[in-house]
Write a protein that binds this DNA or RNA. Sequence first.
DNA 1: ACACAGTAGTTGCAGACGCATCGATATAGA
DNA 2: TCTATATCGATGCGTCTGCAACTACTGTGT
Lengths: 149, 149
Amino acid sequence: MGIRDDAVEIRARGWRTLAALHGLIDTELERSLAREHGLSVVEFTVLDALSRQDGWHMRMRQLARAAALSSSATTRLVTRLEDRGLLTRILCADDRRGIYTELTAAGETLLEAARPTHDRVLEEALAEAREIPELAPLVTALYADAPVA
Amino acid sequence: MGIRDDAVEIRARGWRTLAALHGLIDTELERSLAREHGLSVVEFTVLDALSRQDGWHMRMRQLARAAALSSSATTRLVTRLEDRGLLTRILCADDRRGIYTELTAAGETLLEAARPTHDRVLEEALAEAREIPELAPLVTALYADAPVA
DNA sequence: ACACAGTAGTTGCAGACGCATCGATATAGA
DNA sequence: TCTATATCGATGCGTCTGCAACTACTGTGT
């Protein structure tokens, strides 16, 4: 058990910390967004990703990456949001295999309504995590990773 | 938009980074552990948590926390692993509501067999994440958070 | 022009999850 | 002591997920 095993253990510990912090935040966001706006975390993530996109449209595959979802899950997620009138599918003219998704006015409205909840709960969850010794350093690192200006 | 909004944006960005890194690692671990050992990430997490426990037993609720799972999911997860003979339920003598879970020899064996896969894929996933500009700083922070000695 | 490999998105299917609820036990208060 | 409240784990139910297979389209090489 030398340097090599240490590295393995450090990675494993880091991963456990990362997973624990992620789970904590995700769980609280899930509950609050669902209760107050009828949105899941991935749904919010997709709407948010679309709103931060130039021209407000993205292809399914980009969406899948942004939400860390499989393509099949993305299909159904987009279908759900489309059925609720929060976004629309737009056929790609140049590549007829592709499909663009774009936020509707209703989607934008709901997103902006949900954002305060999202931000508040995220802040609370991070504050809570800071009180847990194993998680505190990672929380600090998260703030430190902010862009320089 | 002053200091306050900056803080909100920094948190949101940090959360997106955290979620992206978690998703990347989780997806790769999931695939590899399933293919090579028939284990999901949470299943591995539970076996690993049990193996790092003094006396090798934990209560359901501790397990739920360690795996960031609801208590109902924990019940079914333990049932699955018990049915496969990887762990056993033990009634609590002092608190008859409680149930301890303990690794069996088979569980320990499978865990040790799966550990190399877990460690290797984790290393690969982190190396991959390091190549992605948005994720690289967080990966570095993960290593830096290692205990001093 | 044509076959072929690669990519985009959808669908069938089985498995896992969380919420709400429930029975059983523990603990605190009148 | 007896009742009220809280905690632990299990179960019914509806929803979401990934994998594998499929269709449709693109681009390359011959």
